[in-house]
C-alpha cells in the first residue's frame, strides 16, 4: 500500500498515528466488554481445579437441567424450522397482498422483551385467565411445566429461520422450480430435489442461530418455568439458582457449558459465512 512510501500517504486512509489510536480504542473496548467476560466464565469455572469443575457438573439437578434444555431446544427448533420454510416459501415464491405486513409480523418477537414473551403465556394459561380453570380441571399442565417452557422458547426464537430464508429465497427467484415443474416434477419433488439443495446452507445458518437462542433463553423461560429444581429448570435458570446460592464454581461450570455452545455457534457461523457466503442471504450478516 501507498503508506510504505516516504512522501505519499493514500488520501483515503488516516495518518498512521490516527490509525493505531483507533485500532487501540477498538481492541481495548472489545477486550473489556466482550473478551474478558467470556474468558472470566472459564476461569471462574476452573478456579478450584478441573476436579471440582466436573464434580459440580455431576449433580442430579444439573444433569436434569441439561436434559431439559436439550429437550426444549429439540422441540422448539424443529417447530420453527418447519414454520420458517413454510413462511419463506409463501413469501418468497408468490406475490400476494399483505406480504410486507406479514414479514413485519414475523419479526415482531424480536422487538418484544423476553419477560413479556413469557408474561403473555402466564396471562393466557394462568390461574386468573379464562383458560386456566378449565386446564386445571382437566389436569393439563402448561405453566410451570415443560409445555410452557417450550411455548416461551418457540416465541422468542420464532423469527430466526424465517428471516434467514426469506431474503435468500427471494434472491433465488422461481426459475429453478418452474423448470423442475415443467419437466414433470411434482410439488414435493421440486421442493426436495430443487429448492432444498439451494437453501440448505442458509437453512443451517438459521437453525444454528435459532438453537443458540433456544438453549440460552433466560427471561421468557424464567417467567413461565416456576423454577422447580430437577423438573422445570433449564440450564440458564439453573445458573441463576446456583449463583444466588453463592455456589459460584457450579454456577460458572454450567455457564461454561453454555459459553462453549456459544463459541461453537460462532465458529460454525463464521465457517458458513466464509465458505457459503453467497448461499446464505448475500452479504447479510447477523
Amino acid at each position: 500500500m501507498a503508506h510504505r512510501s516516504f512522501r505519499l500517504r493514500s488520501p483515503t486512509t488516516e495518518a498512521p498515528l490516527a490509525r493505531y489510536t483507533l485500532m487501540a480504542v477498538a481492541f481495548l473496548f472489545l477486550a473489556l466488554f466482550l473478551i474478558l467476560p467470556l474468558v472470566a466464565v472459564f476461569i471462574e469455572a476452573f478456579r478450584k481445579g478441573a476436579g471440582e469443575f466436573f464434580l459440580s457438573l455431576d449433580d442430579p439437578d444439573t444433569l436434569a437441567a441439561i436434559r431439559l434444555t436439550l429437550t426444549v431446544a429439540g422441540i422448539a427448533v424443529p417447530l420453527n424450522l418447519v414454520f420458517g420454510v413454510a413462511a419463506a416459501w409463501a413469501i418468497a415464491k408468490f406475490e400476494f397482498k399483505g406480504k410486507a405486513f406479514l414479514t413485519t409480523l414475523i419479526d415482531l418477537p424480536f422487538s418484544v422483551s423476553p419477560v413479556i414473551s413469557g408474561l403473555v403465556y402466564v396471562l393466557l394459561f394462568g390461574a386468573g385467565s379464562a383458560l386456566g380453570p378449565w386446564l386445571k380441571s382437566h389436569g393439563i399442565e402448561i405453566l410451570f411445566a415443560v409445555p410452557g417452557i417450550v411455548l416461551a422458547t418457540v416465541f422468542v426464537t420464532f423469527p430466526f429461520v424465517a428471516r434467514e430464508l426469506i431474503p435468500l429465497m427471494q434472491e433465488q427467484g422461481t426459475g429453478d422450480e418452474e423448470a423442475a415443474l415443467s419437466l414433470g416434477a411434482s410439488g414435493w419433488q421440486t421442493f426436495w430435489y430443487v429448492t432444498l439443495p439451494n437453501i440448505k446452507w442458509g437453512l443451517l445458518y438459521g437453525v444454528l442461530l435459532c438453537n443458540a437462542r433456544a438453549m440460552g433463553e433466560f427471561g421468557a423461560v424464567s417467567v413461565v418455568s416456576g423454577h422447580i429444581r430437577g423438573l422445570t429448570n433449564t440450564m440458564p435458570l439453573h445458573v441463576e439458582i446456583l449463583y444466588n446460592e453463592y455456589n459460584f464454581v457450579a454456577a460458572f461450570a454450567v455457564a461454561s457449558l453454555l459459553a462453549a455452545l456459544a463459541l461453537v455457534t460462532l465458529v460454525v457461523k463464521t465457517v458458513l459465512e466464509l465458505h457459503y457466503g453467497a448461499e446464505i442471504a448475500a452479504g447479510r450478516k447477523h
Binding site: 466482550l34 460458572f252 460462532l266
Partner: peptide, 17 residues
C-alpha cells in the same frame, strides 16, 4: 466474528460474568 458474541452467549452467562 467475536463481535457477534453477545448474540450467541446466553444472557444469564453474560450477566454473572
Amino acid at each position: 466474528a467475536i463481535v457477534d458474541l453477545p448474540f450467541a452467549l446466553p444472557t444469564a452467562v453474560a450477566g454473572i460474568s
